[in-house]
Amino acid sequence: MEIREKICTGLKLIKEKSPLIHHITNYVTVNDCANIVLAIGGSPVMADDSAEVTEMVGFASALVLNIGTLNTRTIESMLIAGLKAKELGVPVILDPVGVGATKLRTDTADKLIRELKPEVIRGNMSEIKVLAGLEAAIKGVDSLADEHGSSVVAKKLAIELGSIIAITGKTDVVSDGSQVCLIDNGHRILGDVTGTGCMTTSLVGTFCGATKDYYTAAVAGIISMGLAGEIAHASLRHGEGIGTFRARLFDSIYNLTPEILAKEGKLNYE
């Protein structure tokens, strides 16, 4: 089955199954992440207390961990939930937001990767470079790194960590260590709205909750956000800006169909 067909099947499965996606995520974007999962057809839960995460993971189809607003309490919860997920065969999707900006973020990301071995790691170029042990320019939690060599970095890190590596940027890159997919959907305005990266990770998690093909799931989640960004931007009228765009981004995800994914997805392979 060709990857476009697999992506379309993944969206259909989400609509049929409405997989429960357990998040331990950051408080800046938690509401947006919940709503984007609902918009595509999944069912989000945002439980982060150590007293309930083990039980909650038992109900989940995927676990999304996001280190955007770290604290010692949620770090503990991520580890507890992640270990239970691995025991149950629930895929773990990691978003290492701002890794490299502080020692806490870097140490936490390293520990989560080492102990949980996430099925998918989704980050921007700076974040992935830090995980790969390369120099990267960052500003707060934003990437200042260019995308030169992103395919090589993604493929090498995927082999090293045994995870699907997804780098989002002007051209998105997904690799499982043997194959590399390049995605050219999206619009620069996505970078002007807080949380689009986090929401992309939630979409990846939702697809992972519907299929065991995590490489295709990563491509599907990223292409869904890129296409939604294009559609939402194209709908803007004179005088409308990022507030209207943000609302229409959710509408575009809600109205996404397998036919749109198949026809409008811009995929290349290396």
Score class of each variant (00 low, 15 high):
G89S: 06
K111N: 10
A34F: 05
L65K: 02
S77V: 11
L83Q: 13
K117G: 10
V30K: 11
H22I: 05
L83M: 09
L88T: 04
D32M: 10
A51V: 06
P91K: 00
A47D: 03
Y27N: 14
D95E: 15
S43E: 10
V97D: 12
D49W: 04
D49S: 15
A39D: 11
A60L: 03
G100T: 07
G58V: 08
L70Q: 02
R114D: 15
L116E: 11
A39S: 14
I93W: 00
V64C: 01
L38H: 03
A85E: 01
I67R: 05
T69P: 08
V28A: 03
N31T: 06
H23F: 14
L83V: 03
I24S: 09
P118N: 05
I113T: 15
A85W: 01
V37S: 07
A109Y: 07
T108S: 07
P91A: 00
A85Q: 05
V57I: 14
M78P: 08
H23S: 06
T106M: 12
G89F: 07
A39M: 06
V57G: 00
G58E: 02
V30Q: 13
L83I: 04
K103E: 15
D107C: 06
L83G: 01
T29Q: 07
A62W: 02
A60Q: 01
P118W: 00
V30T: 12
A62P: 01
V97W: 08
R105N: 07
A39V: 13
V64D: 00
T102M: 01
K111W: 06
L88F: 02
L79M: 14
I113C: 12
I75F: 07
L79E: 11
A62I: 00
G98E: 08
D49Y: 10
A85K: 03
G58R: 04
A51S: 13
A34L: 08
P118A: 04
G100E: 03
V57W: 01
I40N: 03
I36M: 09
K117V: 13
A60M: 02
R114P: 05
G89I: 10
E55S: 09
C33Q: 12
R105K: 14
E87I: 01
S43K: 11
Y27S: 15
G82Y: 08
G82N: 08
S77R: 13
L94W: 09
S50N: 12
I36W: 11
E115H: 09
C33E: 14
D95N: 11
H22Q: 15
R114H: 14
D48L: 12
N31M: 11
A85M: 03
V97T: 15
G89E: 05
